[in-house]
Nucleic acid binder design. Structure first.
Lengths: 166, 166
DNA sequence: GCATGATGGTCTCGATTCGCAACTCATCGG
DNA sequence: CCGATGAGTTGCGAATCGAGACCATCATGC
């Protein structure tokens, strides 16, 4: 009797309490994140995503559908005419820090010196500086100075007042 | 048959020029990142990783091997005795910003208000504030104010005034 | 000195997912 | 009307995943 009642066909979340695990469930695969990367860099059409990422077309089709279902992308008709296009939602654009930190880790640890690579630059053409995590007091933090606290409900420890106005 | 001469069995990288894609190739799958998450929160042993993540043991075995091969984890003997343990390398600890931004995106977009969730707190128990990307001048940046520049080699883009013709 | 249990895996095998290629369908250009 | 392009879908073999059985080593109790 490992299943007292009807089976659970959808675990829904790998780890329901952990925001990291939920993010991974929603967008945490190679092709989804590469699609989002290219959407942030201006890609809009199916073919453009396919060309930039090199993903198989059926997989791309699935990922676009999934990202739309999860509210990361939206499908709309192009202003110029009848062609459809995929654009990032607010939630999709909000993945920018994730892609940025991945990019910066890759630059630091996945290239040999001198290897060719693409870089992210701001409007003035200057390289985007490394993102440094800091605590509430502004001091640098890392894995050694933080830990995960399990909370019983949505109330935030110490700073419960901030509400997402989005 | 379809390959009469030497095949290219290892594409090595999905997209060799892009640091994001390289990061995804190295650590960009659900279980690897959950293992790293738990390593940052104190997990050390095979059984502890298995218990926390819930991953199948053969997959965990594979991921630990792969993370060691990529220099994200290291295997060492515990100081107390003969038991082995897995610890993060410098490169592994440097993934902290990636996990942090994923966690923060998940908190903003993957939970209903009031749903129970775990949170990351610093040494004083205060909730870690959101990480905000800024440009070289300190101004906030996002996907709309940045773009990817292809560089021919490892030379710094600050010194390159012409963009590569796509 | 042998059963018991924890740790740290490996093996097998069915299920799922991936990736390539071929095919469809609609529109556009001439 | 004909071909090219965009946007997918379908079929199928290959690779990967996941659950569970199995195995080796060591410590403990008796």
């Amino acid at each position: 009797m490992t299943r007292p009642s009807a089976a659970a066909p959808k675990p829904a979340w790998t780890d329901p309490d952990c925001p990291v695990a939920r993010t991974l469930d929603l967008v945490g695969d190679r092709w989804s994140l590469l699609v989002i990367r290219d959407a942030m860099d201006g890609a809009r059409s199916f073919t453009e995503f396919q060309r930039r990422t090199g993903v198989a077309r059926n997989i791309l089709s699935d990922r676009l559908r999934r990202l739309i279902a999860h509210g990361v992308l939206a499908q709309e008709t192009a202003p110029s005419g009848r062609r459809l296009q995929y654009v990032l939602t607010d939630a999709g654009r909000d993945l920018f820090p994730v892609l940025l930190t991945m990019r910066q880790w890759g630059e630091r640890h996945a290239f040999e010196p001198g290897e060719p690579r693409s870089t992210l630059v701001d409007e003035h053409g200057a390289r985007v500086p490394d993102l440094k995590p800091t605590g509430a007091d502004g001091a640098p933090i890392d894995a050694g100075t933080t830990h995960v606290r399990k909370t019983e409900d949505g109330s935030s420890p110490e700073l419960a007042e901030v509400e997402a106005p989005q």
